[in-house]
């Protein structure tokens, strides 16, 4: 086998829950370390070297400095993996993009708003080429392991595209709609093994929209199950503002 791939972890604007989830592979961590050399991980270590084969990047881009850093990371990485909803589709941070940015800054910092520059929250793919996505909020551990083994084997990981409903039905979970709740499973990408519905909660759409989503039909479903049109779109926006704003224009 060739030299171990050099792996680095980076974080941008986000909650760092994805990174924590990477540290939460207690049962697999030692096996994983057999296959790679971790060369940079700010949250866990202080070494700071140069080149790497695989960069796992969490968080969305929201300041001018972020843009500079991600371009630098892209230059130094052979494979760039976006980890988690913030990095993949802008995630929850994207919600601020739906309102004028000046208004938002003023609301939070008042007259001191100019101390803190900000941009609309962007997914990594808006600025650099992303090779692989690990979706979810936090990133789906199951998917991370699949991506990790695929990359170690030198193959492109397969990205799941079907709706959460498929995995939910495979597990024969009680349908969340049957319980009188709403759920974004029908238009949300699976790959999480329907984790939230398996624990009785509705799907909040954290893994992003399926390709070519039929949003008008989804709106009708949500309205039929008791939400106002306004509320329906708010729920859809939670994790997908960036994409939905893009679809609008």
């Amino acid at each position: 086998m060739a030299a171990k791939p050099r792996v680095a972890f980076f974080d941008f604007t986000g909650c760092e829950g994805c990174e924590l989830n990477q540290l939460n592979f207690e049962n697999q961590l030692l096996d994983m370390l057999e296959h790679v050399d971790i060369v940079e991980w700010r949250e866990a270590m202080d070494d700071r070297p140069g080149e790497y084969d695989i960069a796992f990047v969490e968080g969305s881009l929201s300041t001018p400095d972020c843009i500079k850093r991600i371009n630098d990371i892209r230059r130094r990485a052979k494979v760039l993996v976006a980890v988690g909803a913030c990095a993949v589709q802008g995630g929850i941070n994207g919600m601020k993009n739906t309102r004028p940015i000046e208004e938002v800054r003023e609301e939070v910092y008042g007259k001191d708003k100019y101390l803190f520059p900000t941009l609309p929250a962007l997914p990594l793919s808006a600025v650099v080429k992303v090779d692989v996505n690990v979706r979810g909020c936090p990133m789906t551990q199951l998917e991370f392991l699949k991506v990790f083994t695929a990359l170690v084997m030198g193959k492109q990981p397969v990205e799941p595209n079907s709706a959460v409903c498929v995995e939910c039905k495979l597990k024969e979970n009680e349908c969340v709609y049957e319980k009188g709740m709403i759920c974004l499973g029908p238009v949300t990408r699976g790959g999480c093994d329907a984790h939230c519905p398996s624990f009785g909660q509705y799907c909040t759409g954290c893994r992003g929209l399926v390709p070519e989503p039929n949003l008008k039909a989804m709106e009708e479903i949500l309205v039929k199950h008791g939400l106002s049109v306004n509320e329906a779109w708010k729920r859809l926006h939670l994790y997908n503002s960036h994409e939905l704003e893009g679809l609008k224009s």
Binding site: S62, T118, K234
Partner: peptide, 16 residues
Amino acid sequence: APRYFEAMLKGRSFHE
């Protein structure tokens, strides 16, 4: 980097 959660919460349902 600030994330402006305030803007995200406005008008949100108590479920969220």
